[in-house]
Amino acid sequence: MESRQDPADDAAVVLESRDEPERFAELYDRYAPDIHRYVARRLGDWLADDVTAETFLVAFRRRHRFDPARGSVRPWLYGIASNLVAGHRRSEVMQYRVLAKTAIDPVVVDYHDSTDSRIAAAAVARQLAGALAHLPKGDRDVLLLIAWEALSYDEVAQALGIPIGTVRSRLNRARKKARKALGGIDPTTACEEFTHG
């Protein structure tokens, strides 16, 4: 799911791209599939291409402001993508409401091999999508970055520009609300099952 790269390499590529802009393409090649998948899950395929491209365009334009001490660009890119997703909040909530009714996720369906796994995922998907639709944006961002993208608390804090304590409190609040909607199932586990079937 996550691209495994040396964070120092990420920082070096960003620094070198300041003088050699074509180097930034390496970061696109490395992280675009993960960002695209994340955005597609949140907004659907019809917006994922545009938002992914915009994420990298924003990052490219802001590369001179990237602090190499941050290391990996992964949280930075997820933060940009999450902010762009926020601009499409109505589409995201509508996506979850449709998913809650139909239990069909176009991102996940392609990855399921058996009918049994699709049926099991659909049962969880409806409840999970309904719960996600009702979470506040900040809580939803934290939950999905941790559950879907396997970012650490520190990476989520960097991505969203919030203190790590806020990450913990938002995740705790999101888990409680989603767990209630899921009949006691931990939403981070449900998100993983929903994602991987």
Score class of each variant (00 low, 15 high):
149 E>Y: 01
124 V>L: 08
183 G>W: 00
71 G>E: 11
18 R>N: 08
36 H>R: 15
38 Y>H: 11
75 P>L: 09
182 L>S: 00
93 V>K: 06
176 K>W: 07
77 L>H: 11
79 G>I: 06
33 P>K: 11
184 G>M: 05
99 L>T: 09
150 A>W: 08
173 R>F: 02
33 P>F: 11
67 D>K: 09
183 G>F: 03
155 E>P: 03
74 R>E: 13
106 P>A: 02
79 G>F: 10
124 V>N: 02
34 D>T: 12
73 V>K: 09
48 A>K: 07
193 E>Q: 10
22 E>Y: 10
135 L>W: 13
148 W>P: 04
130 G>K: 07
156 V>I: 07
68 P>V: 14
57 L>I: 14
167 V>Q: 07
190 A>M: 12
114 S>Y: 06
102 T>N: 05
102 T>Q: 02
102 T>L: 12
165 G>A: 15
116 D>C: 04
17 S>P: 09
100 A>D: 06
189 T>V: 15
101 K>S: 14
80 I>V: 13
159 A>H: 08
131 A>S: 14
123 A>D: 12
36 H>T: 13
171 L>D: 11
143 L>G: 03
1 M>C: 03
20 E>L: 05
178 A>H: 01
59 A>L: 01
84 L>R: 09
45 D>P: 01
135 L>K: 14
195 T>F: 08
171 L>F: 09
26 E>T: 09
18 R>G: 11
